[in-house]
């Protein structure tokens, strides 16, 4: 505290400038993107509700939420990386590797289930650590470093599993991690997603970790010159994102009752799309956890609704692509206006 008082004493006598204030940004602008995402979600819900009576039934809603869980958890973790102006392409296949490792620990090695789950999540942390070392210490561009990791993780998942699924049939209560219902009618996977979201929100908006994440994304060199050990923090950020990947891997395996080594490719892009739709900037410096959650929900509501309307799968991709383009378009619009 003494510091600011020192500064205060020093500065009080500094000569006054004028008093005109710089123009202020209205708060609505800061929330435009997120409000837009939220509005889009509501509009989609209303539209599909009007189009099909089957849409707004509890069983369908909880199905949509369950389908969101894995992508949602991945997206939440990668929001941190994207907020630093980085990117993580390894989360899809990384998640698969975590699923497979959970299977190896629980089924092949017969470790107690909670321990196997913990090790599965830590596998994600190791993937994140390697990404972080490549990006923060060796200085590889995040795109390249995580592209490499994406391929490595995919290869390892196939090699370790012997290219065949690992079934958790004999692991007691493993499937209830995702499919049990601590809250009646709501699959635990959804609960996990919301808990993870709450944790991510807390980390990003309330802690020094989040503040530094934003600072690095906003201007890494300025952050470094301010005495922030940016390399160490970037390493930590990638590890945290990796742990989220691990959680997604466990939830995925539990939901399917098996670790499927062939899955995973493409999940990273869906997760990144959810983050962008939610208003986190690819240029860094601006991240929103609620936005990411809404973005992930928009994607699965859209896919579910189109399916209910019996629209071909091929067209579903087209629609999702358009939504992503629109989201980014509104984002650039927002940036232009506030510039």
């Amino acid at each position: 505290m003494s510091s600011s008082e020192n500064g205060a004493a020093v500065a009080t006598e500094a000569r006054a400038g004028g008093t005109t204030a710089a123009p202020s940004t209205p708060a609505w602008r800061a929330w435009l993107q997120q409000g837009l995402a939220f509005g889009t979600l509501i509009a989609l819900l209303l539209f599909f509700w009007a189009a099909s009576p089957r849409f707004l039934t509890w069983s369908n809603i909880s199905g949509v939420l369950l389908a969101t869980a894995v992508i949602g958890i991945l997206a939440l973790g990668t929001t941190f990386v994207i907020t630093t102006a980085g990117i993580d392409l390894s989360i899809g296949t990384g998640m698969t590797l975590c699923s497979v490792m959970t299977g190896i620990f629980a089924v092949d090695l017969g470790l107690p289930m909670p321990l196997a789950v913990l090790l599965g999540i830590l596998t994600g942390g190791v993937i994140g650590l390697l990404n972080g070392l490549n990006v923060a210490i060796l200085g590889l561009p995040p795109f390249i470093a995580t592209l490499a990791m994406m391929m490595i993780a995919q290869g390892l998942a196939l090699v370790i599993s012997g290219v065949s699924p690992i079934y958790f049939n004999d692991v007691p209560s493993f499937q209830s991690i995702a499919l049990g219902t601590l809250i009646p009618g709501l699959p635990n996977a959804v609960l996990i997603m919301f808990l993870v979201a709450a944790l991510a929100w807390f980390l990003l908006s309330k802690t020094i970790f989040g503040r530094i994440t934003v600072a690095i994304g906003s201007n890494e060199e300025a952050a470094r010159l301010s005495g922030i050990d940016t390399r160490r923090w970037k390493l930590i950020i990638y590890i945290v994102a990796g742990l989220f990947t691990g959680v997604a891997g466990v939830v995925m395996a539990s939901r399917l009752g098996s670790a499927q080594p062939q899955l995973g490719v493409g999940y990273e892009l869906q997760a990144i799309a959810a983050v962008i739709i939610g208003g986190t900037s690819l240029m860094g410096g601006r991240g929103s956890i609620t936005g990411t959650l809404i973005g992930a929900l928009i994607m699965s509501v859209l896919i579910n609704g189109l399916r209910i309307l019996s629209i071909q799968t091929e067209w579903q991709n087209v629609v999702v692509g358009i939504v992503i383009a629109l989201a980014v378009f509104f984002d650039t619009l927002r940036n232009k206006r506030s510039a």
Binding site: T207, I208, G285
Partner: peptide
């Protein structure tokens, strides 16, 4: 020198983040 898109507050404390965070790193 600056985190341009960030607020005056964030920039003011940018070199002393540790002093403005407590238990569990809560700001």
């Amino acid at each position: 020198g600056l985190l341009l898109e960030q607020s005056v507050t964030t920039n003011t404390i940018a070199a002393s983040l540790g002093r403005f965070s407590g238990l569990l790193g809560i700001m």
